[in-house]
Design a protein around this nucleic acid. Structure first.
Lengths: 234, 234
DNA sequence: CAGTGGTCTAGACCACCCA
DNA sequence: GGGTGGTCTAGACCACTGG
């Protein structure tokens, strides 16, 4: 086992055991160089990686501190629907239902940090996998972010990819619900009126300015959010 | 901007632009040392971090290769229900409904890589936030992993925490569905018979051996999967 | 001001892969 | 054997922090 890994273990075990409680100041890099008899680059790498893993917090000029243990959490991956379908080797198609400018109501004005009546772009489309509807996508986009949004041909370039091409968001927020969708959505997805659906709400910001808000609706019977493995960690 | 960051950008932009297509062999560390006039440690750090980010693949003895661009994906966090409720400052309570040994049917035998009729532990409980049912948890555990499972007091230590205490899984798989749960679950969650629910299925392995499979059911009207921010990345 | 972490250098040895 | 990445050393300068 490499030296820096052993140093990481050495430090991590003391933090997990509680010997170094959250907030405790850890030995400085120079101290560890002296006590462990290794090079500073090696100690530094161990500490840097522990910092990236969230086990310690490093502050230039002050020192390295034991972090509060992160609540153990796992992750679920969310991918672009077109990519996902392509990865399964199936064919992806889109049907555009609406593409129009709208005026913000109170809820939208709040979401986009603008005034009631402000101009926004609105698109609705249905994505299908081998002809079977699998996602209803309703999206609001601010003109400041994508002024040409209404002139795009979303049959050739997916909305997600088009918006990514403009700029990568600096913040993304997701929320997943289970809902029974309203009649129009059931009709477009070709499902019964009481079928449970997954609803994924995604909001994006660019440098703190709201850019998009999207409601994805998936038929519960035809879709599940991509699970994913987490390899051994810590 | 630090040198190694500039080297990362330099390499990353060439990969993203397609100039270095997936599978292309990149300049070796020594070559970059010569062409860029920097130290090998600096090039190495840049390459190592790009490797961790999945943009390049490094193979000892062969070289560094441009990786297939990861499909852009975002992540959703899944936390232990007790932690989540505690983080909101609310009170968490559990009601144990079943805790028993069972025999594996075909589906369970497949899931746990054992034979039909093999012994498994089965638990069912309902978690409540401030007295309101919020999660129905049905769990299967293999005796090899947790032989004392049936003797635990899950009112004091949550199942998740107890199982984590035995060993951290080396693999986790999650899947999220929208369902209309069966009558018993609706009754325990105190919801109507047609209410949409989120179902999260979690399977864990320790060193490749199946350890647990759990079905979490959340009322769609009272719960949404924790969204989360992704800070600016690349 | 002394101490901290952030970065960088110019060497070195090693395990690994391929021809 | 020659080239690759993985690791490690013993220095160095810097920006930042606190007293």
């Amino acid at each position: 086992m490499p030296l820096y890994e052993r140093i990481k273990e050495h430090v991590a075990s003391r933090i997990k055991s509680g010997e170094w409680a959250p907030g405790t100041r850890l030995p400085s890099e120079h101290e560890l160089v002296a006590t462990l008899g290794v090079s500073r680059m090696t100690v530094h790498r161990a500490f840097r990686e522990l910092g990236a893993e969230g086990l310690v917090a490093r502050v230039q000029g002050r020192g390295t501190f034991a972090a509060s243990p992160r609540p153990q959490s796992s992750l679920i991956e969310i991918r672009d629907i077109a990519d996902e379908i392509a990865a399964r080797g199936h064919s992806h198609s889109v049907r555009l239902i609406r593409l129009e400018p709208v005026r913000a109501d109170q809820a939208l004005a709040d979401a986009f940090d603008t005034r009631v009546g402000g101009r926004l772009f609105h698109s609705v489309m249905v994505h299908a996998e081998d002809g079977v509807p699998i996602q209803y996508e309703e999206r609001m986009v601010t003109p400041f972010f994508a002024p040409q949004y209404l002139e795009q041909d979303f049959a050739t370039v997916s909305t997600t990819k088009y918006l990514q091409g403009i700029a990568n968001p600096t913040q993304i927020m997701h929320e997943v619900f289970a809902i029974c969708p309203r009649a129009e959505i059931c009709r477009e997805l070709e499902i019964g009126p009481n079928e449970a659906c997954l609803q994924l709400v995604r909001r994006t910001w660019v440098n703190g300015v709201p850019a998009t808000k999207t409601w994805f609706t998936y038929p519960g019977s035809r879709y599940s959010l991509a699970g994913r493995y987490d390899l051994a960690r810590s």
